[in-house]
Computed example of a mutant assay.
Amino acid sequence: MSDIRLEALRAQGAHLIDPIRFRYLEALARRTQSQPAAVQRVLRPRLDSAIADYVCRVDQSVSLPAVTARSAPRPSALIELNRYLHERSRDEPQDALPGDAPRASEMKSVRRFSEVWSRIAAEQQVSQAVARGPENAGPLNSHRLMLRALHLMKGLSPDYLQRFLSQMDTLLWLEQANRKTAAPEGKSGKRATKKG
Rank of each mutant, 00 (worst) to 15 (best):
S2Q: 15
A8L: 13
L9F: 02
R10M: 12
Q12I: 03
Q12R: 08
A14Q: 03
L16F: 02
L16Q: 03
L16T: 01
I17C: 00
D18I: 01
I20N: 05
I20F: 13
R21E: 11
R23Y: 13
Y24E: 03
Y24W: 03
Y24D: 03
Y24Q: 04
L25S: 05
E26Y: 02
E26K: 04
L28P: 01
A29I: 01
A29F: 00
R30T: 09
R30A: 06
T32L: 11
S34I: 10
Q35T: 12
P36S: 12
A37P: 06
A38T: 09
V39S: 10
V39E: 09
R41F: 00
V42G: 04
L43Q: 08
R44T: 07
R44V: 03
P45T: 02
L47D: 00
D53M: 02
Y54W: 02
V55G: 02
C56P: 07
D59Q: 04
S61W: 14
S63F: 09
L64M: 14
L64Y: 07
A66D: 09
A66V: 11
S71D: 09
S71T: 11
P75H: 01
A77Y: 07
A77G: 15
I79G: 04
E80D: 08
N82R: 14
R83S: 05
L85G: 00
H86Q: 14
R88M: 01
R88Y: 10
R90H: 12
R90G: 12
D91N: 09
D91K: 14
E92V: 04
Q94C: 03
D95F: 08
L97K: 06
G99K: 07
D100T: 04
A101M: 10
A104R: 01
K108L: 14
R111S: 15
R111Y: 00
R112L: 12
S114W: 00
V116C: 12
S118E: 04
I120F: 06
I120N: 05
A121T: 12
A121K: 12
Q124C: 08
Q125S: 07
Q125H: 03
V126K: 01
V126N: 00
S127C: 11
S127T: 13
Q128G: 07
V130G: 04
A131R: 15
A131Q: 08
R132A: 10
R132G: 12
P134C: 08
P134T: 13
E135C: 04
E135V: 10
A137W: 07
G138Q: 11
G138E: 05
P139E: 10
N141M: 09
N141R: 08
S142K: 11
H143W: 06
L145C: 13
M146Y: 10
L147T: 09
L147E: 05
L147Y: 03
R148G: 05
A149T: 15
A149N: 08
A149F: 05
H151A: 12
M153G: 05
M153S: 00
M153E: 03
K154W: 01
D159I: 07
L161C: 04
Q162T: 15
Q162N: 14
R163W: 10
R163D: 04
R163Q: 15
L165P: 05
S166W: 01
L171K: 13
W173L: 13
W173P: 01
E175Y: 10
E175Q: 14
Q176D: 14
Q176K: 15
A177M: 14
A177L: 13
N178F: 05
A182K: 12
A183F: 09
E185L: 05
E185M: 03
E185H: 11
G186M: 11
K187T: 12
R191V: 03
A192D: 02
K194D: 00
